[in-house]
């Protein structure tokens, strides 16, 4: 039910984002999505890729410090209020979101929300109980050729 997310430390200066992306592209690894969180001084690049083991190996070999985190993907209808509905569920259950990001699928009318919880398992239970659909890796990557 959970996805493996890779995180990399980047300095916040020109050209730093391109290097790791080129390194995995050179290995023919396709990105599902990414998110970048930054401060004035540094940034954290978070990646969702199908072949995360190989991507991790490639990046670590090239010298990056890579962190592996379990995140939860939820799909919602790609319309106004889609995200708000999920947030209401999490809020009423008193669950704290460490961070989140979202993207739309190329085909279909779905948006995918990626959540990072301190402890993902209770959150998954809450989301499921509320009738929301958790997207696992197999399903997510089936949208890609």
């Amino acid at each position: 039910m959970k996805l493996q997310q890779l995180s990399l430390f980047l300095e916040n200066r020109p050209g730093r984002l391109g290097a790791p992306l080129e390194a995995i592209a050179a290995e023919g690894i396709n990105l599902m999505t990414l998110s970048l969180a930054d401060t004035a001084q540094f940034g954290i690049l978070r990646l969702i890729v199908r072949e995360w083991e190989r991507a991790k190996q490639v990046l670590e070999h090239a010298g990056w410090v890579v962190n592996l985190t379990e995140v939860v993907a939820v799909d919602v209808p790609d319309r106004p209020g889609g995200l708000a509905e999920v947030l209401r569920v999490l809020e009423s259950a008193g669950l704290n979101i460490e961070y989140m990001y979202a993207f739309s699928l190329r085909r279909g009318d779905k948006a995918i929300l990626i959540f990072r919880f301190e402890d993902p398992d209770p959150a998954i239970d809450v989301l499921k109980t509320a009738g929301l659909h958790i997207v696992d890796a197999e399903e997510l990557f089936s949208h890609f050729p």
Binding site: S7, F9, D38, I44, R46, V65, V66, N67, R116
Partner: peptide
């Protein structure tokens, strides 16, 4: 230099290390 021991996917955690 950031090491695997202190690196986190959370900004807050890294800011705390700093």
């Amino acid at each position: 230099e950031v090491t695997a021991e202190v690196f986190s996917d959370k900004i807050r955690a890294l800011e705390a290390v700093r």
